[in-house]
Design a protein around this nucleic acid. Structure first.
Lengths: 220, 220
DNA sequence: TAGATTGTTAATCGATTAACAATC
DNA sequence: TAGATTGTTAATCGATTAACAATC
């Protein structure tokens, strides 16, 4: 089997539309390690090194990456800066996503004042709270707004992602309001189950459930 | 194909040792929905109903459950209370896991004062902080302790799980101390990458990364 | 009984990885 | 050049699901 046809080059560029959750999860981990590696002054990194930190099989790392382009140099490895940029691009994070935070309580404050969303290309455009006593106070550099300013913010900033850090009983009514305002992804930190139309995605995150997962890794 | 042999009954009970991460994740979601269903007074639930809330294929739900026993009644569905108990047992949560929380800052307080760990069978036995000004204050019903009380707590309570809600720069030194004290699972809420021996599991959780995942669901 | 729903088989599908040629 | 490491193929493995008999 030599290479009689170059027809294969015809393939029109890798299509980035269909990204499985597994791939997305692993790319995020690579990005996390790469960011650290850059801080440590590393300029180049091999799939074997990435594997040591992420515990992902090196072949799989190469396969994950090669699906989107040829980012590495054989015999050398991957350029750290270049790979960070590529993964960011793949993750569509390059074009900064605007998000709004709901709830200026303890968890809301913790989220607002951390760098993590910013580090991954998310831009917090507004913080809302239903409590009039919290409105007007400052959280993570944002002035807390009342909920009735929501429609304006949605329109102006094309907001599709909302992060909910509110009490369980407040979650469903708020979700209804968000859906009505055109929000398509709700990232739910409350314990309440949310009922939304099929075109809206709810991602419920719970430290306890995450911990359960971690426990399985350990127990199995 | 009638049923000439009952030899099949020989199979010696389903072995619960090897629980894939996917199954564990789904079981947690079923548990979450079941808990809500119970609050709403529901006594029985079908795989189809569970599917509506979790968006998991009903066949898969039945398959996930049937791997551990026959919990349902044909034509009727699953008993809510019974299934909650079974899943808890499967998740090994029945035998309350002891966990310790490190860091009494904003995130630490949010975690300590929520019910979510308790709801899933986790028992916070102690809260630690390196800051002498925080030691002695009360967080979520626990008196914050100094780090040098850690060895005692580990021995007394057989602690294997630690939840880290500390600044990135404090994470690695603390992790070293924890490893030395016999902790086997570190649930890392800080952004720092942790280097630990192979027998210790680190689970790094980041709202931003979780959000990225949610975004994929939406984009794909 | 008739309708509903489980438990399970068998087929499909996708994800993982070993192996190796390409090449820096 | 020799050694290292990527990119990719082909085989393996496990997870998902359609279909249906069992049975409440």
């Amino acid at each position: 089997m030599s290479a009689p046809e170059a027809a294969q080059a015809e393939e029109a560029g890798p299509d980035e539309a269909r990204l499985s959750l597994g791939v997305a999860a692993r790319l995020s981990r690579y990005l996390q390690v790469l960011t650290q590696a850059r801080k440590m002054g590393k300029e180049t990194i091999s799939s074997r090194e990435l594997s040591e930190y992420t515990h992902v099989n090196p072949t799989q790392i190469r396969r994950d990456l090669s699906g989107f382009g040829r980012f590495g140099k054989r015999g050398v490895g991957y350029n750290v800066d270049g790979l960070i940029a590529e993964i960011r691009r793949i993750l569509q994070t390059a074009g900064q996503h605007n998000i709004a935070l709901f709830g200026a309580g303890r968890l809301g404050k913790a989220i607002a004042s951390s760098d993590i969303f910013a580090d991954h290309g998310f831009n917090v455009v507004a913080v809302f709270d239903a409590d009039p006593r919290k409105v007007g106070t400052s959280v993570g550099g944002h002035t807390v707004r009342p909920l009735d300013e929501l429609p304006g913010v949605c329109e102006e900033d094309g907001l599709v992602v909302a992060v909910l850090a509110v009490p369980a009983e407040a979650a469903q009514p708020l979700a209804d309001t968000l859906v009505a305002s055109g929000v398509k992804i709700i990232f739910n930190y409350s314990e309440g189950l949310l009922q939304v139309p099929p075109d809206v995605t709810v991602h419920t995150s719970s430290p306890a459930i995450d911990l359960l997962h971690a426990l399985y890794f350990y127990l199995s």
